[in-house]
Amino acid sequence: MSDSELADTAVDMFRREFGGGPDSVWAAPGRVNLIGEHVDYAGGLCLPIALPHSTSAAVSPRSDGLIRLRSTEAGPWDGRLADVGPGRPDGWAAYPAGVIWALRENGLFTDDFGGVDVAFVSAVPIGAGLSSSAALECSLALALVSDADRVELAAACVRAENEVARAPTGGMDQAASLLASEGQALLLDSASDSMSQVPFDPEGLTLLVVDTRAPHRLADGAYAQRRGTVERAARRLGVGSLRELADQGRGGIDAVQSLQDDALRRRARHVISEIARVRLAVQALHSGDFAELGRLLYASHLSLSRDFEVSCAELDNAVESTLIAGALGARMTGGGFGGSAIALIPPGRVDEAVEIVRSRAEERGLTEPEFATVTASPPARRLI
Rank of each mutant, 00 (worst) to 15 (best):
A276E: 11
D90N: 13
G91W: 03
R267A: 15
D78T: 14
L280D: 14
E363V: 13
F337S: 01
I126E: 14
L296T: 03
T72I: 11
Q260M: 13
A93S: 15
F109V: 07
Q283N: 15
S300G: 12
R306V: 01
D307Q: 14
V374H: 09
G91A: 05
F290W: 12
G348K: 12
S177R: 13
M332T: 00
G288C: 06
V118C: 03
D351F: 00
F337Y: 07
R235Y: 10
A119I: 05
V350W: 00
Y298G: 07
A135M: 08
R232I: 09
A376T: 14
A327C: 11
A276H: 11
V278Q: 12
S133D: 04
L208D: 07
D23M: 07
A255T: 11
A176R: 08
F120H: 02
C138M: 06
A94K: 08
I356M: 06
R306E: 15
W92G: 05
L304V: 07
V118M: 14
W77K: 11
V39P: 02
G44R: 04
A372S: 15
Y41D: 05
L153K: 08
G339M: 00
G326L: 03
A234N: 14
E231H: 15
A281Y: 12
R62G: 03
G326D: 00
L130V: 05
R269T: 10
G44K: 05
R236V: 15
V25C: 09
V39Y: 06
V210C: 06
S146F: 08
A155I: 01
D64E: 11
G87P: 12
P369H: 10
S287F: 05
V209L: 07
A94M: 08
I100P: 00
L108T: 15
Y41R: 08
E37Y: 08
A28I: 10
D193V: 02
R265A: 06
P76H: 09
V124A: 06
E182A: 15
G115F: 00
S241K: 13
L237P: 00
A156V: 10
D220A: 15
A154V: 11
R104C: 04
T373F: 04
V121D: 07
D78N: 11
L280A: 10
D83P: 01
H270S: 06
R150W: 05
S194T: 14
T373R: 04
D149V: 06
L323F: 05
R159G: 02
A7Q: 15
Q184I: 08
S359A: 08
L108Y: 04
V99G: 08
A255N: 06
L237M: 12
P29N: 15
L285K: 13
G21M: 14
A176Q: 14
A128Y: 01
S4A: 12
G87H: 07
G335W: 01
V350D: 02
C46N: 13
D147Q: 09
L344T: 10
G21N: 03
M172R: 15
S273I: 10
S196Y: 03
E362V: 13
F120N: 01
F200V: 02
